[in-house]
Design a binder for these strands. Structure first.
Length: 490
RNA sequence: CGGGAAGUAGCGUAGUCUGGUAUCGCGCCAGCAUGGGGUGCUGGAGGUCGUGGGUUCGAAUCCCGCCUUUCCGACCA
């Protein structure tokens, strides 16, 4: 198997190769679309499970809305259409026929759709058009719905997981009777995402609000969680939007309040996508391959036997079976890889590449001494422990690995977050350092644009729990009351 | 969508300038040895040279179109 490129030498190539060699995904024959392979998908499924559990706990139900959206719906909300029109796939016909000239199948010109359909880039429009029919009274509210779906955004430049033409995600869409309730919902889901990111993905995130420039097309406020990758670039890992009454107005979605007044419904939407796979990879993995946090690893522990004879394997298997059943009882996923088609060293390298958090090796010498060798993926430490103690050891070790992976990412982010106060310092940081820049900003889109033009850095977010401190905008010198996070981003 | 680079066996590549159907490594298959970090030796299988046209007696090689990947821009979760 080919060695991975080194992160330091070519971060981009390292990422691309890792995604493929670790069996996560590959390019398909359709431009910009990927095949998510079984191992990659099993990680995505773990993400889904954890998120879905949290959505249910916060009162949401899953539903499903169509893939196709009538073209006219998109244009009902002005800024929404502006944001998405340029990247929509459009269905114009519903039938093929044999080419009379013998060139295979062609689009049947007689099967033109009266109204063209777009493939959803997101579902606000069709959902609000549906909600309109569901809501008459304040008694019908709130509606708390989520859907797991695929969406299509016709991107010019794609990368596996980070930006693909078709991607998988969840989109929550809620409807509320009051502004306050909708705002609380949007913030609540941001908290859910942050909790998931930090505790499951082991990914430290900054919770923040987007500037006007970066806001979702159609939202009043866009909240986000931003994470730092190992190359110092920012990656938006999740967003939650307070939509105000924008979509309700666009789709005439009204209700009668307790006070017998007719009012527009307040809305939110929130989503995370398969992009999280990219975040996971780029935040933790190393030159040997994937590093998966235990809470997300499809296989948490792999046991590799070392043996020559059948008797040895039998003796090992007997021991391993006891371990396995005890570990499974504790909810730990274990794989015993006793294949004799691959060598021991090959297996070691393979499970490192795939990011399995803990590897246990047991051979004849261990059988004699009643020991086994435990290796952790995050630190590559190997220790020999008593075989009787293995189950307990792993039980303690997994959370420790989880914590360590988070801490490592946290320390890195801290080290690579630079407080700057002058434009010279800003330019120096953006060219000579990597990471986040925390700086004062005068609050105008104009300044943000100019900084972007000069440095390519954009405001990733205004942190929610920001310390209020007076200062001067790093670009214009105008007064500012808090620092914002600038960075290059994915 | 604009500019650069690339596409040869499952993967990575040589050959392209100077036209004569293809090199090497990994992987795959068989056998023997090996087995506590990608094991060694021997033998073997596997190729519409991305694709469609053109030039030529003859094209991986020269010319044109298209597709895909990649990097840089514009756009974006």
């Amino acid at each position: 198997m080919a060695k991975l490129p080194k992160r330091r030498e070519d971060y981009s190539a390292w990422y691309n190769e890792l995604v493929k060699t670790a069996d996560l995904a590959e390019n398909s024959d359709v431009r910009g679309c990927m095949v998510i392979k079984p191992y990659g998908f099993s990680i995505w499924e773990k993400m889904q499970q954890e998120l879905d559990k949290r959505f249910k706990e916060t009162g949401h139900s899953n539903a499903y809305f169509p893939l196709f959206i009538p073209k006219s719906y998109l244009s009902k909300e002005a800024s929404h259409v502006e944001g998405f029109a340029k990247e929509c796939a459009v269905v114009t016909h519903y039938r093929l026929k044999n080419d009379p000239n013998g060139g295979g199948v062609i689009v049947d010109p007689d099967a033109k759709l009266e109204e063209e359909l777009i493939v959803r880039p997101t579902s606000e429009t069709i959902i609000w058009n549906t909600y309109k029919n569901w809501i008459q009274s304040y008694r019908d509210l709130p509606i708390l719905v989520n859907q797991w779906a695929n969406v299509v955004r016709w991107e010019m430049r794609t990368r596996l997981f980070l930006r693909t033409t078709e991607f998988l995600w969840q989109e929550g869409h809620t409807a509320h009777a009051t502004q306050a309730e909708a705002e609380i919902e949007a913030k609540q889901m941001l908290e859910v995402y942050a909790d998931f990111a930090e505790n499951i993905l082991a990914l430290p995130v900054i919770k923040g609000v987007k500037t006007t420039n970066e806001r979702f097309a159609g939202a009043i406020d866009t909240y986000c969680i931003e994470a730092m990758m190992q190359d110092g670039k920012a990656l938006q890992a999740g967003t939650s939007h307070f939509l105000g009454q924008n979509f309700a107005k666009a789709f005439d979605c009204k209700f009668t309040s307790k006070e017998n007044k007719i009012e527009f419904v307040w809305g939110t939407s929130w989503g995370v996508s398969t992009r999280l796979m990219g975040a996971l990879i780029m935040a933790h993995s190393d030159d040997e391959g994937l590093v998966l946090p235990p809470n997300l690893a499809p296989i948490q522990v792999v046991i590799v036997p070392i043996y020559k004879t059948e008797e040895q394997l039998n003796a090992i298997t007997e021991k391993v079976n006891i371990w396995k059943s005890e570990l499974v009882k504790k909810g730990i996923s274990v794989k015993f890889d006793s294949r004799d088609t691959q060598s021991t060293g090959w297996k070691f390298a393979e499970y490192e590449l795939k990011g399995v958090p803990v590897r246990v090796a047991i051979g004849p010498r261990d059988l004699e001494n009643n020991t086994c060798e435990v290796a952790r993926r995050d630190t590559k430490e190997k220790t020999s422990i008593s075989a009787d103690n293995l189950v307990h050891h792993i039980e303690v070790l997994l959370p420790e690995i989880q914590k360590n992976i988070f801490q490592k990412a946290f320390d890195f982010r801290k080290k690579q977050t630079h407080n700057v106060n002058t434009w010279d310092e800003f330019k120096d940081a953006i060219t000579n350092k990597i990471g986040f820049i925390s700086a004062h900003w005068d609050g105008t889109s104009e300044t943000e644009e100019k900084i972007k033009e000069a440095t390519k850095a954009t405001i990733r977010c205004i942190p929610i729990d920001n310390i209020q401190e007076t200062g001067k905008c790093v670009f214009t010198g105008n007064p500012s009351k808090e620092r914002v996070i600038f960075a290059l981003n994915y």
